[in-house]
Amino acid sequence: MGVLEKITSNQELRSWPGEIPLENLYTMGLAGERFFRGIKDEAKLLGTRCKTCDVTYLPPRIYCQGCFEKLVNWVDLPPQGKLETFTILNQDRAGRPYKTPRILGLVRIDRSEGALIHYIQGLEPQKIRIGMKLKAQFRSSSERKGSIQDIVGFVPA
């Protein structure tokens, strides 16, 4: 009767259930705080700029990942840009089919190297083209809470 022997009956198979029980709280950080305040209070997009590397970060960062200088130049960016890629979501996170597929796009924001990933709205999937101009649609000021969901999505510019 040794441990070398293996389980040979599926009746004896067993697993032990458990979880990692926790909840996380995330601050937006120094850059994120200012970015989301900009969205919440003024419905505008803010980026940070590294002059040395000629890069404008969106979402903004307090550092340039290229040269590691501290970024202090904040710039207003137009809430619009070009569609770099998109995907049509036919199912939700649990794998259940969506009745109406959702579309997520990556919109490269004008005058920056950055982008936002958000829903594309007001367009039939077959009408969507890489490279098309889109603009962000914000929720009304009373609905905005300072999160990425303050943006409803992107619509044709």
């Binding site: 259930p17 979880e19 990692i20 926790l22 909840e23 996380n24 995330y26 601050t27 989301f36 999160s147």
Partner: peptide, 11 residues
Amino acid sequence: LFTTYKPKLAY
């Protein structure tokens, strides 16, 4: 500003 998330990490 902050956001929270409660993951469902079950095994």
